[in-house]
Structure formats: C-alpha cells, structure tokens
Amino acid sequence: MKVFKRAKLEKVLDKLSASYEVHVPMKRGAQSGFFDYRTYNADFDELVLDVLNVLKPPKEAVFPQTEKMYSFKQEGQDVIIDKVYENEDKRIVFGMRSCDLMAISCLDDVFLTRGYVDTFYKKRRDNTIFVANACYSPGRQCFCDSMGVNPVEPELADVVLREYNEGYVWEIKTEKGEEITALIADLLEEKDVNLPEPKGCTLKVDYEGVDKKLKGMFEHPMWERFSEPCQTCGICTYTCPTCHCFDIQVKAWGEEGYRFRCWDSCMYREYTQMAGGHNPRETAKERFRNRFLHKLEFFNERYGKPLCTGCGRCIFVCPSGVSIVKIIEEIKGA
C-alpha cells in the first residue's frame, strides 16, 4: 500500500497546490467548508481532514453558488458578447466523503446527461480531480448506507485516502489519480497497514419502494402536517450536496453588464413566482412537498437513484427540526 504519514499532510497539500487549486476541508471562523489551500492561514483556519465532514458541501468546486457566465455590451443596434467565463482552472477536491461524491454523481446526471451538456459545469468538472476520504466512522445523523452509498468505497474517486493510526493510505483509482500521485511520489512510502473496521451508519432508513409509493401520495395529508414547522428558509437546500437548482440573472449598467447564475432554492417564494403574479407553490406545504418529491421520487424516476445521499446535513441544520429520515419513514408507513 502507498501511504503517507500524518505529519506530511501539509507537505502533500503544498506540493499539490503548486500545480492545482486544492480544495480542502477547513474550519474558518464560524464556517466550515472546502476552501482553497492557498488561502489557508494557520492563525485563523484549521484543517479538518480527520473530522467527519464540513458543513458547506464540496459541490461548490464544480457548481459555485455564484458563477459569472458572460459579459456583454451594446454597440449601436447590436449586443456583443464580450467574454464567456468558462472556468478551466485545474483543481483537486481533497478529502471528500462518499456521500458528497455520490452527490457529484447526481450533479453529473443533471448537467451532463440526457441530451444537454452544461458547458460551464463540464469545464469545471473535467478539470477537477477527486481525492476521497473513506469514512470508517459515520456520525450520528449520517445514513448514507441506507441511500445506496458505500462510505468506504467512494464512487468517482480518482484517489481514495484511508485514514489509519499514523497517517493515510493513498489508493489510486484512475489515470488522473496517477497524474497527481507523480507530484507527491517522494512523500509516499510502501507499507502494509491495518485499516480500521468500518462501523457503518447507526441511523438507518428503508428507502426501498419509496419512489414508487410516492407516485400516489401527492395529495397525502402528511405534507400539510410535516410542513407545519418548516419556515421555508434555504438552509437545507444550500447545505445539501445534491441540490442544484439555480437561477440565471443579469447585472447591467448603462450599455454593459454580465449574466451570472446563482443557487436558487425551491423553499423560496420567488422560485416559482410567475410573471402574471400567480404562484403555484404559495405556502410551505407545496414547497416542502416538492423538495421531498424531487429528492425521493422524480429524480429517481429520471436517473435511477435518489437525490439524497444520506450526508445528514439537512437533519442537523434545520432550525425547525425537519428530518428527511422521518419523512421517509412516514411515507413507508403511510
């Protein structure tokens, strides 16, 4: 096995950062998320590769919250597209968990398949390498293994890290993985190590058949009852690794401006606001129902997997205590 000692972690990141933008899990003040290692400041930031996960999901590496698309200006009667902002920076997302990688696989389905390729996403995606971090001890609110995710065998990973008592196993999975291995070859050593026993999730939920059952539950009274505490904020959608709704907007001054896209949330009123003033999802009930139907029914219908990877973030961030696990249980029992 190729391994590197824990004390060499920063050296590994330094080396990779020389050629790539390396997004690593960090605690930065009150935030936690994947931040560019080049911005790491030991006085303020804390590397948290050994911690279960970070609050802000790594989807931002391929699908940023705000992304400039193109700028334009008016010349006489014509509008000229000045510049198209396709991001081709080479980056590594370092230390992603299986749940968040499965989420990237969901984003791939949306942005790259079924006849339409989103070029902004594709450019970022093609230039992104994933170094996963196998998860041997899921947290109390994790339930990825109920949602078809294997916490210790991450999908899409180019390299898999496996934490052992002295450091990390570096397991190469793809050609891209080989490429970055070359950059840190002198920091790796060959060694057989004992890996921890995978613990699996303690929180379990039975998703089997939920998608089919939901087909007949659009008018079920559970949506009214379960949405009662929901305040329709967007915390669940913005901390969700799979949520991918966006809006395209414009900022313009006089004769020039730019278009950008930014995350949107189905929990917001504005999301379904129609030009004539009508809103088909006026209250929490409709928005709440749509969110769960999309995650558990519609996405599965189209792509053959749920749009929830069991990362557990929405469960612990919800100010009103809404739990997707409870919702799935309720659907099963309905």
Partner: peptide
Amino acid sequence: DPLKKMYQDSGFAVQVN
C-alpha cells in the same frame, strides 16, 4: 439550544461557541 446540540452531535467540523 437544540440546534447547537445537533451541530455538536453531528460529528461535523462546526464551530459551536
């Protein structure tokens, strides 16, 4: 604060002051 306790209990790297 139940939210604080949920954050703490999640095992995630979150700052709970």
